[in-house]
C-alpha cells in the first residue's frame, strides 16, 4: 500500500542516510541544507517533512541521535549513521541503482511510435 508520500519518504530517507554517510554527524538543518546543495536547489525540501523521516529512521535503528552544540552555539540534535544504517544504506543504494538502471534502459529503448 505505497502511496506517493511513501515513495517520497523512502527516497528522502535514502538521501538522509547518504548525507550522514558522507558528512558524519549532522543536525536536521544541516541535512536539509546539504540535500538542497547536492540537488543544486532542483529539489526544494519542505524542511518540515524531514523530521518524521528522521524519527522513522531512528525507530528502525538506522540512525541514532545525540544532543550537541551547533555552530551558532545552540543546543541541537546531531544524527549519525549506525552500523546497521551503513549496511542498510549499501543495500538500499544498490537496490536504487539497479532500479534506476533498469528504468533508464527501459525508457531509452527505441519506442514503437517514433
Amino acid at each position: 500500500m505505497k502511496d506517493k508520500n511513501d515513495v517520497w519518504q523512502g527516497t528522502l530517507a535514502l538521501m538522509v542516510m547518504k548525507t550522514l554517510d558522507m558528512m558524519g554527524p549532522q543536525h536536521g538543518y544541516g541535512i536539509a541544507r546539504r540535500i538542497e546543495q547536492i540537488s543544486e536547489d532542483l529539489l526544494s525540501v519542505n524542511h518540515g517533512t524531514l523530521y518524521p523521516v528522521l524519527l522513522k529512521l531512528e525507530q528502525e535503528g538506522s540512525i541514532a541521535s545525540d544532543w550537541g552544540i551547533s555552530e551558532n552555539n545552540r543546543k541541537a540534535r546531531f544524527y549519525h549513521l549506525t552500523e546497521e544504517g551503513r549496511r542498510e544504506l549499501r543495500t538500499e543504494q544498490l537496490h536504487w541503482e539497479t532500479t534506476t538502471s533498469i528504468m533508464a534502459r527501459f525508457l531509452s529503448a527505441p519506442g514503437g511510435n517514433q
Binding site: A32, Y51, S70, R74, A76, R77
Partner: peptide, 9 residues
Amino acid sequence: DELESHIEL
C-alpha cells in the same frame, strides 16, 4: 527544541 534550533539556524 529541535525545531526551534532549526528555525534559528
